Amino acid sequence: MRPDDWQLTEDVDDFLARTGDFLRSRPALHTLPLTVTETLRTRGADAYGGGAPVFGRLERAGEVRATFFRTPPHALSPTPLSPEDADTLAARLAGLGQLLPGVRADRDTATAFAEAWQRHTGAAPTLRERLRLYRLDTLTAPDPLPEGRARVAGEQDREQLMCWYREFAAAIGEVPSTDADSWAVERIAHKRVMFWESPDGTPVSMAGVTPMVAGQIRVAPVYTPAHLRGHGYAGAVTVEVSRAALAAGATEVVLFADLANATSNGLYRRIGYVPVADFAVYDFSHAGAEGG
Rank of each mutant, 00 (worst) to 15 (best):
T9W: 06
F15W: 02
F22R: 00
R24L: 12
P27F: 00
A28F: 12
T35Y: 01
V36L: 09
L40D: 05
R43M: 09
A47D: 01
A47E: 02
Y48L: 00
G50R: 05
F55K: 10
L58T: 03
F68G: 00
P80T: 11
A86N: 10
L89I: 05
A94I: 03
V103I: 14
V103Y: 02
A105T: 07
T111R: 15
A114H: 10
P125N: 07
R130T: 13
L133Q: 15
Y134V: 02
P144E: 11
P146M: 06
E147P: 04
R151M: 10
R151Q: 08
A153N: 10
D157Y: 06
R158V: 02
E159R: 12
F168A: 08
I172R: 05
V175G: 01
V175D: 03
T178I: 07
S182M: 01
A189R: 15
H190D: 15
V193K: 06
M194H: 11
M194N: 04
M194V: 13
E197V: 14
G201V: 06
M206V: 07
V213I: 15
G215F: 11
V219R: 11
V219F: 11
P221F: 04
V222N: 06
V222I: 14
L228S: 13
L228W: 13
V239W: 07
V239C: 05
E240I: 05
R243I: 12
A247H: 07
A250P: 11
A257N: 08
A262D: 13
A262Y: 03
N265M: 03
L267K: 03
R270Q: 10
P275F: 07
D278P: 03
F284T: 08
H286W: 09
A287I: 07
A287H: 14
E290A: 14
G291M: 01
G291E: 04
